[in-house]
Amino acid sequence: MAYKPQYYPGTTSVGKNRRKHMSGDLEKLRDISDADVVTVMGHRAPGADYPSTHPPLKEMGEPDCPIRQLVEPTPGAAAGDRIRYSQFADSMYNAPSVPYWRSYWGAINCRGADPGTLSGRQIIEARERDIEQYTKVQMDSEMTDVALSSMRGCTVHGHSLRLAEDGTMFDMLARTEMGSDGKVSYVKDQVGIPLDKKVNVGKPMSEAEVAKKTTIFRHDNVAFGGAQGARKFDEGLIALHHMWERRSRWGFRPE
């Protein structure tokens, strides 16, 4: 029988969603064009050539190395692209991919990527044409709700703040706006430089929907320690305690 990774324990909807994000088995909710993704990222103009930091690997004449023979380079690495990034802030008010799950998704599913989670933001770095593809997957799939998540390269403040009246996450640079039709558009790229044309990313999910799709445990949705008055710890919490105890006592070695 083929091995099937388990990724994450737990029977709650949060546990299931965390497994979905880590496995990369994600539902596609919208289709944002490649040009729009590139525009919001702001590293190059859509349609422009990819600047490079070194010649294509085939022209470079690589040393005789068994690892290089084993590992096929990503398209960006093969072409010698620059390293670029996309960074998302996700609201703690039930955003779908918060707080670590973009990074876990990136680490498990994206080749040649360097993910990182900081306080309230998650960044993935990779070669330019690779990160564009990874960013499109994030923006198109259920990892992103257009009101509660947004691409923010700098001035990311918003994750732990209350939402605005229209239900969008606070953004100091006003990169997105909610139209009168209820659809969200990016009016600036991820670092706050105004765009020539708005990028429409569609309607946000309803409150009930994000509560089902979120990966965050919250006392007012799916609580980490079970419902108040009827404590029943999620398997995820038991596993976490187990790791914490083993790690504290002896240094955790999962064998």
């Binding site: 700098c154 001035t155 640079l173 670092v191 706050g192």
Partner: peptide, 11 residues
């Protein structure tokens, strides 16, 4: 804009 490549652009 307080930081980054867009620093100084009016909001």
């Amino acid at each position: 804009v307080p930081y980054g490549p867009g620093k100084g652009l009016p909001i």
